[in-house]
Design a protein around this nucleic acid. Structure first.
Lengths: 162, 162
DNA sequence: CGAAATAATTAGCATAGCCAAATATACGAT
DNA sequence: ATCGTATATTTGGCTATGCTAATTATTTCG
């Protein structure tokens, strides 16, 4: 319970959490054949769907990737007809992204599939254990939120369905 | 608390956990410049270090990637002098992998760095919240363990310091 | 107006995943 | 003993996602 011990624990917990996150993502990868949505695209589309029209740059920072990376993700999503772009009328450097009806639909389905794979694995857990994971997810999201996201009064990224 | 509610919750929890895992790994990626070890390599090296000599095939399944993918990771780790290969004397199709002294050292350092970054983020949490994450990591590891790993009496992957 | 800043894109590179096919070796049945 | 099948690993070729550096277009500011 001393400060020293907590600090040492924190390192070990970080270590195990890191490893667990890697394995968890591996578990759901490969469930994508049906939706054709990769983790990165699903995640980006998810922000567009939930955070309404958003600029490419803000989407990139919400997803914590660089602008060029997001440019490509956006191009792929657009080519699939899942999102649409609209130039800003005031600042013509800016592109606004919105989800299409198809994008919203595919998001639900694709996400459902991946989540289903994970949820299947979670079926081995009881209600109490699920609560632990739920709380942990909230903590992880809080801890990984960028200062940017916390500071600005935006509803980006962490837009929560409840 | 009903069974129905738990099932619906499970989907939502899986969803949030999935998203949280993505963001968590994004947080630590980028701390790798110093070690030069990518997540995949670090993870593979970690198994080799902790699980002692291991065959390429078992390493691949422990890491839940295909053999070709592991062949490449192993080639990179070997080229960096972090692991060494030794042909099995009985079954010459098989390759046994061991960590070199350099590999063990680099693993500690590289891992320390990434874990440190994550631990830094965790410093915003109190002891109780850390416990939640610790428990969650254990659950995630349990849930993502392959049947293979559970069935065989091997000490792969989940070698735990405690 | 011209310089610096900003938003997005393009180009080029590396890593890491996959599948299909190729090797090399072992094992089993005749 | 050998022939066919199974297993372990590698090779080749493709895709996706990350990066940085440089480019383009536009805005903003001195």
């Amino acid at each position: 319970m001393t400060s020293t011990k907590v600090s040492a624990d924190r390192l070990e917990i970080a270590d195990r959490l890191h490893s667990a996150a890697i394995h968890l993502l591996r578990l759901v990868r490969g469930q994508d054949e049906n939706s054709g949505l990769s983790p990165a695209r699903l995640s980006a589309l998810s922000v567009v769907v939930f955070a309404g029209p958003v600029t490419l740059g803000r989407l990139a920072s919400a997803e914590q990737v660089t602008a060029p990376t997001m440019t490509r993700l956006v191009a792929a999503l657009e080519a699939d007809g899942l999102i649409s772009r609209k130039d800003d009328t005031e600042d013509r450097r800016v592109v606004w992204l919105s989800a299409t009806a198809k994008g919203k639909k595919i998001l639900q389905e694709g996400r459902r599939r991946r989540v289903h794979a994970l949820a299947g694995a979670l079926s081995a857990l009881n209600a109490e254990e699920l609560t632990v994971l739920s709380d942990a997810a909230a903590l992880m999201n809080r801890v990984t939120a960028t200062p940017d996201e916390r500071q600005r009064p935006r509803r980006l990224g962490t837009a929560r369905a409840r």
